[in-house]
């Protein structure tokens, strides 16, 4: 089974700093694999097959250590599409490029994480399925594959449906579906030898997709002035209670 895993490279949120004008600065921010995509990589390994990883992004996301990290977790090869136009791409732009790349690489099953660590829109994987015209299921908390079919447990807010679908298909996984493994020495060493294919949008034969969302601003929220009435010591618990008892209305 040819499995394609989509991974997003994002900034380490703890490194993001706030500028005086409340804008965000990524200057000191390290890049990392979006946590939720690690579940997708792990699931691919558990299902077993010919696993390829795919990532798209702006040129700033081109990072040797990240590529090695991704390859040390199970995929046999990695495809990267980088282009200036993809910096800060919206979900539709991303899905469009992923679809073009997926068609070029070929797949039986595409696995995605639930959402990405930055916006957590939980949209891209589903859009990808729709654009490719194949069955797409999201919020999948259990997944097995056999004989050209998948059986997925889709966990919605109030119920669980067990769904059967033929391959090819796109599946978006929940973050509690599995525990991503920690790569060992040998995995990390082997990662350096695996093939990485780099494509531009021209290689995919597509033009930069249109922007579909107008981002007006990205600002840190205005901090509310807080009272900061703080007591010290376990023995002051009653004092705390006295402070808050009128504030808490059950």
């Amino acid at each position: 089974m040819n499995i394609l895993v989509c991974c997003k490279i994002v900034y380490e949120e703890q490194d993001i700093s706030v500028l005086p004008d409340r804008g965000l600065s990524y200057d000191r921010a390290e890049l990392k694999l979006s946590l939720y995509d690690l579940n997708a990589v792990e699931q691919a390994v558990q299902l077993s097959g010919n696993i390829r990883a795919l990532s798209i992004g702006g040129k700033n996301k081109d990072n040797g250590k990240i590529k090695k990290n991704l390859l040390s977790r199970g995929p046999q090869e990695l495809y990267i599409v980088t282009d200036e136009a993809l910096s800060g791409a919206d979900t539709h732009q991303t899905a469009t490029v992923l679809a073009a790349a997926a068609k070029k690489i070929g797949f039986d099953l595409i696995l995605c994480g639930e959402g990405s660590a930055d916006l957590y829109a939980q949209q891209t994987g589903i859009q990808l399925g729709e654009l490719l015209g194949v069955p797409v299921i999201s919020s999948v908390s259990k997944l097995t594959a056999a004989d050209g079919k998948i059986i997925a447990e889709r966990t919605a807010d109030d119920s669980v449906d067990v769904i059967e679908a033929p391959l090819p298909a796109v599946v978006c996984l929940t973050s509690d579906i599995n525990e991503p493994r920690i790569p060992g020495m040998k995995d990390i060493l082997a990662a350096g030898k695996k093939p990485v294919t780099e494509w531009s949008l021209a290689d995919l034969g597509i033009a930069a997709p249109e922007v579909t969302v107008d981002v007006i601003s990205i600002l840190a929220p205005v901090g509310k002035d807080r009272k900061r009435i703080i007591v010290e010591g376990d023995d002051k618990a009653t004092e705390l209670f006295d402070n808050i008892k009128n504030e808490v209305r059950s």
Binding site: T91, Q123, G129, S138, S139, T212
Partner: peptide, 22 residues
Amino acid sequence: TKKGRYMGARLAAALKTSVLTD
């Protein structure tokens, strides 16, 4: 909701746009 987001996403792809989520 999970199901709501699913519908929204597929529709967005069909309409060639993105959903303004949450």
